[in-house]
Design a protein around this nucleic acid. Structure first.
Lengths: 104, 104
DNA sequence: TAATATCAGTTACATAAAGTAACTAAGTGA
DNA sequence: TCACTTAGTTACTTTATGTAACTGATATTA
């Protein structure tokens, strides 16, 4: 009966990061603002459908921002907010762990 | 056409960590070795079915070890291997981010 | 001018993963 | 004997994801 209560903020963070594709999309955006098609092409097997869903979720969480450039034709750029950029150290630790513990 | 190739080890790490429940199970085990039912009860909404699946996957990845104590009745304890313990800093960064950026 | 291509998605349908609840087998305790 | 615990499993339902075709606005090419 020893119910170890998780911190709800920590739980929320894990929930965000452990949705399929979310981490890789954020990681991809760490390399700079980019267009929908660029993200889609950078992540093989990620469909436009799921990318579209994830970008909306991440925008809603305040992690990603979507900027429309009224050129012709219109150009839409996705980038990380400060909140999104702040996720970088997490990826740093994942990278370290993977280098140290996963086989080549 | 600028296909940003991901490091396969990094990709694998993200794949492991972003499976539903995996991170929370590992986090729970960071508090020490424990039995199936304890993990199950610590994580509300995690069913025995999925817990069983995840523990097998994590054992297969070398992150969790399963030890049978031949008492009567038999006791089975799950714990983290060194590889599993090494994930701790990732959770540290997730905790930091969540404290700084998620609303209370 | 007509045909084709690009971008940023959306839609419809198929498959895979997760949730729910009941069940099992071995042992314990009342 | 009946009920309870542990460590799961099974059958069934619901949700999520994958796949592929399609849209509508603009641009480019033949």
């Amino acid at each position: 009966m020893e119910r170890n209560l998780l911190c709800p903020r920590f739980e929320k963070a894990v929930e965000i990061l452990s949705k399929r594709w979310t981490s890789l999309i954020v990681f991809q955006l760490l390399s700079g603002p980019q267009r929908f098609i660029n993200i889609d092409q950078a992540l093989p097997n990620l469909s436009g459908k799921v990318l579209s869903e994830r970008l909306k979720e991440l925008e809603h969480e305040g992690i990603v921002k979507r900027v429309v450039f009224p050129e012709s034709p219109v150009r839409i750029e996705y980038s990380l907010t400060d909140k999104g950029q702040a996720l970088a150290p997490i990826f740093g630790e994942i990278a370290k762990w993977s280098q140290e513990w996963l086989p080549v």
